[in-house]
Simulated assay, not measured.
Amino acid sequence: MVARDRLDTATAALSAREAQVEAAKAAVDAAQLDLGFTRVTAPISGRVGQTLVTEGNYVAGGLTPLTTIVSINPLHVYFDVDERTYLRSLAAGRADAAPRAAQSAKVTLALLTDKTYSRPGRVDFLSHSADRATGTVRLRAVFDNPDGLLTPGLFAKVRLETGAPQAKVLVSDQSIGTDQGSRYVLVVGKDNKTQYRPVELGPVADGLRVIEQGLRPGERLVVKGLVRPGMRISPQPAAIDGTPLVPLLPLVAGRAK
């Protein structure tokens, strides 16, 4: 037989010990949770920048930046197109036509040191409105970057094919003159007499200027020289960039004497 008061005391002591055990388990769980917070896992893969905090420094959760990380594969490239290109090629009169036309357009990229547009990509974003200040529409293209050569923040050249290839007349910018804001070239006629010809310029393609109107294929132009309209000249054949063409002399076989 045990006295009632002694039983109550033992029961209370047992309950206190059990509470202490549960508190200790809760402290262990909290310590494990805090330990898990000491390992920072990036939500994306990419390239890590400068370490802003070193070991031993105090950090506040959500307030102290540790470093920065940028995604490099794939990489997004933003560029703008003018209103004329947008209206001619990307807008087709329906609300959903422009995004689909942009996504189907072929886009290639070249860095400032590249001579060719060798990196293919795809358009995945077309802005819903035009910029009133610049009169352009913003697009975004995605490019694979397995070698990591494309670095965020670099400037690049983008070529967007908005239609089927077309035959165009290409000339050197050296042969284009300016007359009161309009552009012209001097065409050499059959009698070697120069003719004034106003032209409408297009974009630059592979270092040459596209002529939209004013010239026909095969016509001869004055590239260099002090020449005025109506002059009779003795033209010297030259490449399209003005470099003189050296005639090839025939190779004659013979025997040395």
Rank of each mutant, 00 (worst) to 15 (best):
V2G: 13
R4C: 08
D5Q: 06
D8A: 09
A10N: 03
A12V: 14
A13Q: 12
S15A: 15
E18P: 01
E22L: 01
A24I: 04
K25Y: 00
T38N: 07
I44Y: 02
S45H: 02
T51L: 01
L52E: 06
E55V: 04
Y58H: 00
A60D: 07
A60V: 05
T67D: 06
N73D: 07
P74Q: 07
Y78P: 14
Y78A: 15
D80K: 14
D80S: 15
Y86D: 07
G93K: 04
R94A: 05
D96N: 05
A98V: 02
R100N: 13
K106L: 04
V107L: 13
L112K: 13
L112Q: 14
T113H: 12
K115F: 13
K115N: 09
Y117F: 15
R119C: 00
G121P: 13
G121M: 14
D124Q: 05
F125V: 10
F125K: 12
L126G: 04
H128V: 13
T134R: 12
R140A: 13
P146D: 10
P146M: 09
D147I: 13
D147H: 10
L149W: 07
L149T: 09
L154E: 13
V158S: 03
E161Q: 15
P165E: 09
A167T: 13
A167C: 10
L170A: 01
S172W: 02
T178C: 03
Q180E: 11
R183C: 03
L186E: 04
L186M: 00
V188C: 04
G189L: 11
K190P: 09
D191N: 00
D191K: 08
Q195V: 02
E200Y: 09
P203T: 13
A205P: 04
L208T: 07
V210L: 11
L215P: 11
L215S: 11
V227K: 02
R228F: 15
G230K: 03
S234Q: 15
S234A: 14
Q236C: 12
P237Y: 12
A238T: 04
D241A: 09
L249A: 05
